[in-house]
Design a protein around this nucleic acid. Structure first.
Lengths: 337, 337
DNA sequence: TTGAAAGCGCTAACAA
DNA sequence: TTGTTAGCGCTTTCAA
């Protein structure tokens, strides 16, 4: 006798009925935990497949105390966040956790994005390069564990996982000095995540090499147009022999304007970026850059979020990961003049 | 007498107790629906604020028949998806719906992204430029309403909202012909969403202008490196006077290689992109391009998703929106030779 | 305008 | 190994 077709989405009860067992057993089988015989397991799985059953994550999350759900806030306009999301999905999957996303867009600020997430009862919230005032982040931190990824937030209620931005600039400057450069400029990132640390790293490195007098910081920003503007500034005011740039996007814009103006890179000017994003690896960009360790940053972020969610005592609110210089085609020896 | 502090997250019952009303009333107030007096409303709101109460979206969704939740699958690596997300959030908010996101990353395919979404009991699933085989999309369509945005899927169970890609290329070619160009090449997008339609549009337009003999399609792709490769191909094989490119990213790479090789754009070669993405608007790119109407595409997508979810009969499975040519600095009159 | 009570689909404690 | 039962936090009748 053929079974009645089910019009609504099948529930656990439907599967239980079809397999001739209780819902508790179905639950056990679907979660893949011990407690059911192989035969039952098979029967339940078959029934579930036949009905096209999928567990309802809402009901599941509502019932179970630990949701195994991590909320992530990212910015749609920042392509490096795409890399971080890739890393976070992988890291979460590795420890059997889910990720739920909330985007910041030009029409939807961080506050709105976070508020949406908080209603989802994630165990913790991960913020990519948060731009909100510290007070707001602390407010969230008081409610639920918060990890800021790639931005330093000085507040005891906010965990931080970030790259040692200052070290990144040390590496960049060291590399350029080694190539014989002395007139090295830094195109800075304004108020973006990591910008202050990179500025400081640049200044420190220049001083360490006895190049205080040569140090020069030029206004830039986080995107290509900011880099383009910086390039125009440099072209107007006299070119250095090397430039360290806040990030790859900014470096790309700068490169483009320099090249279009007939400047040879790295012949006339060497350029070093930051992030090692997709952009840096493009064949026609091939940018020497400071690489952030995305897999490690992601793993530590997920681990910390979960540790906090489980109320573990944690040592070191801030985790700072060393970057690594990737030398490509935009940096070379200073031209002998 | 001070109230006991609540250790766990406050629930509706806590708010009800604090305000001295029933949970039913709290529910009414929190949803902002009629059925409570102004005084009660105020009292409940005050209690909720004091406790820092937030409704639990899972419980809410579990209980209510209509979730007002739309699932969206996007690709982290495609920056145009960022624009679409921006539009979709706005369109959903306008009709009081929520959006839940699921990302496709290099390590997480569309199938995985969709599966996660299906467990969330969204009312409908919106797929940005889906790359999965039609059979899989149909399979989802059999379960839940599906709208494919910016890609044509020929299946009765899948709704489509997309740009008239062919018209876009008509506009591009018309524009170039008007500027006196005859040797117009198309750098195509391979298997990307819209690529086939754009190829066809190019061929049609060339034929309409009696330029069959000049028509030439060069392999390209969706990203900057594909454009760079196409540029190298053109440089090696003899430059046309104008190029229509699959999308802005590809056009950007092409532009960069042309310019670096000393080609003047638009003096020697005119270039037209597609999408009118952020890239096209960068000061140093300033790309003539075919703009997709993101706000309209987004609105129609959300409307259609909701209409299907509510079981409305719908006319026109496929909605095709005309694009609009945006003339900027990369296209100009053919050089008199 | 209010409250009591039933249950959304699931998990988890317990009993059998 | 299996089934029974009691909720998770909310919405939604229905009656008061």
């Amino acid at each position: 006798m053929p079974r009645e077709p089910i019009a609504r989405r099948p529930t656990m009860a439907d599967v239980a009925a079809a397999a001739g067992v209780s819902t508790a057993l179905v639950s056990i089988v679907m979660r893949d935990v011990p407690g059911a015989s192989a035969a039952t397991r098979e029967r339940v799985l078959a029934a579930a497949a036949e009905l096209g059953y999928r567990p309802d994550s809402r009901a599941r999350l509502l019932r179970s105390s630990n949701s195994r759900l991590l909320g992530v806030v990212f910015h749609v306009q920042q392509d490096f966040h795409g890399s971080l999301l890739t890393g976070l999905y992988a890291a979460a999957a590795a420890v059997d956790h889910q990720i739920t996303l909330s985007a910041v867009t030009p029409g939807r600020d961080e506050r709105a994005a976070v508020n949406d997430l908080l209603q989802d009862r994630c165990e913790a919230v991960i913020l990519l390069g948060p731009e909100s005032p510290r007070a707001f982040l602390a407010e969230i931190g008081a409610r639920t564990p918060v990890v800021a990824l790639t931005r330093n937030v000085r507040h005891r209620l906010v965990d931080v996982v970030r790259t040692a931005d200052d070290q990144g600039l040390h590496q960049a400057v060291d590399h350029l000095v080694q190539l014989g450069h002395r007139r090295i400029v830094h195109v800075e990132g304004g108020r973006s995540a990591g910008a202050a640390e990179r500025r400081r790293g640049y200044t420190e490195a220049m001083r360490r090499h006895g190049l205080d007098a040569e140090a020069r910081i030029v206004p830039g920003g986080a995107d290509e147009d900011d880099g383009a503007a910086a390039a125009r500034l440099l072209l107007a005011g006299g070119l250095p022999t090397a430039v360290t740039v806040f990030n790859d996007r900014c470096a790309t814009g700068l490169l483009e304007v320099l090249r279009t103006s007939g400047v040879d890179v790295p012949g006339d000017v060497s350029v070093v970026g930051f992030d090692d994003s997709r952009l840096a690896r493009l064949s026609f960009v091939d940018l020497t850059t400071v690489a952030q360790d995305v897999p490690l940053l992601s793993r530590l972020t997920v681990e910390r979020a979960i540790a906090r969610a489980q109320g573990e005592t944690v040592v070191g609110r801030e985790q700072v990961i060393p970057p690594r210089l990737v030398v490509r085609q935009t940096s070379g020896p200073v031209r002998v003049g």
